[in-house]
Structure formats: structure tokens, C-alpha cells
Amino acid sequence: MSTDIHARHPGPRSWLAMVRYEGTMVARDTAGLIVPIGLPLLILVTSSSAVGDEVIANGRTALDLYVIPLVLTMVIASIGVINMPSFLAYYRRAGILRRLSVTPASPVMVLVAQVAVSAIQAAFGIAVALTVAFTVFDANPPADLGATVLVFLLAMAAMYAVGMIVAAVSPTPNSAVAIGLVAFLGLGALGGMFGGRAALPDAVAAIGERLPFGAAVEALAMAWAGGAVDPLHLLSLGATVVVGTVIAAAFFRWD
């Protein structure tokens, strides 16, 4: 009597429904929109007035090559490494994942829906920040737009990968939030979030450059200036995506 029962995985309509309702959840939680949309603007405004307007390279100023890459990286890192794992932790603690686990839905659907929705938020927040940068602070567009977009997408994937590692390996929901914060601050500190990597000891700076945050800032700056992006940075980001995906696939569980 079991021969007529087949494991059918939910189809594209179900995936779309998950993304749509994740989006609904986020849209109804207005406080949760402050970080992805408010944070980039805040950092941009507070940092932009501090930098001068002298040209650093290829007609691009300090705002274009230092502030904007750092702002973009901070946005995707905070959403990917802190926000996404905490949302999953809440789902886990509230028993929502457990309830879904007795349906044909798979944990991957929840992960993908989360990533899709937070990517939309990030895109919106960054669009607002860049509009202000271009119109109010006279930022210059990237010298190599295609390379900049590609590097940005790779960096974003890397940050979500870090977030997935956090979500997958955290033993308890609360520890996911703590581990996410520590990962964000640690990667950020080594990657020049607090006053630039130049201020760090050489060895530490070298490590930071090889970790996803530092690599993202450097690669974005180089692409924005129109120079050749260092393969070391691309390798770091690519490796993070691979490692994060493998770890998440192996360890992420419903409960």
C-alpha cells in the first residue's frame, strides 16, 4: 500500500508562495526595515561629509573609493550575517520550522525565500543610499559598471554564505544572534570597518584582506575605480560562497 505514494517536492508555485509570504512577513514588521534601509543612508551621510573631494584615481574621489564600497559591504554583511540568521533563529524558536517539517516543504525553501526577500530589501536600501550619494554628495558612478555589479553580487552571495554558516552551526536560536554579531564585528574589524585596514598591523590587515568583508571592500573599490580586481579578493569571496553552501546543506536542519 506504500507503492502508490511518491515523494513529490513542492513546485515553483510553492517556492513563489514562500518568497511572497516571507516578503509579507517582512513588510508587516516595519521595525525590521530600519536596518537594511536606514543603516546605509546613515553611514553614508555621516561619512560623506568627512571626506574631501580630491581625486584618488581615474576621476574618482575618496567618497567613491573608500566610503561607498565600505557602505555597500556593511549593508550586505549586516543583512546577510546578522539579520538572516536571527530571522531563522526566530522561526526555529517559535516552532515554525518544526511545523513546516511535517509538510513536504524543505528547509531549503525557507532559506531561499529568506535570501530572496532580504536581497530585495538590501537592493532597496542601497538604491536609496546611492541616490543620495549621487544627488547630494556628488558621487561619481563606477568607472566599470559591469565589473562593479558582478563584484557586488559575488560579495552579497559571500555574506549570505557566512550567514548560512552561522544559522547552520549555532546550537541554539539565541546563540545564532550572538554568533552572527561576533562574526559581523570580527570580519568588519579585520576588513577595515573601524577606520580602514591601513590602520591595522600589516599581518592583521593581510588576514582581513583575505576574509570576505575586507575582500569585498577592496574588490568593490577597485571595480569602481575601473582597475583590475585582484584575483585574491575574488577567490576569497568565491571560496566563502562554496564553503557556506556546503556547510549549510550539510548541517541546516529543521530542529
Binding site: R28, G95, R98
Partner: peptide, 9 residues
């Protein structure tokens, strides 16, 4: 499930 919780919003 006993005491199951769903997407609150």
C-alpha cells in the same frame, strides 16, 4: 502539533 506556532504576521 501541540502548541504549534505559525508565521505570526
Amino acid at each position: 502539533l501541540q502548541a504549534s506556532y505559525l508565521h505570526h504576521a
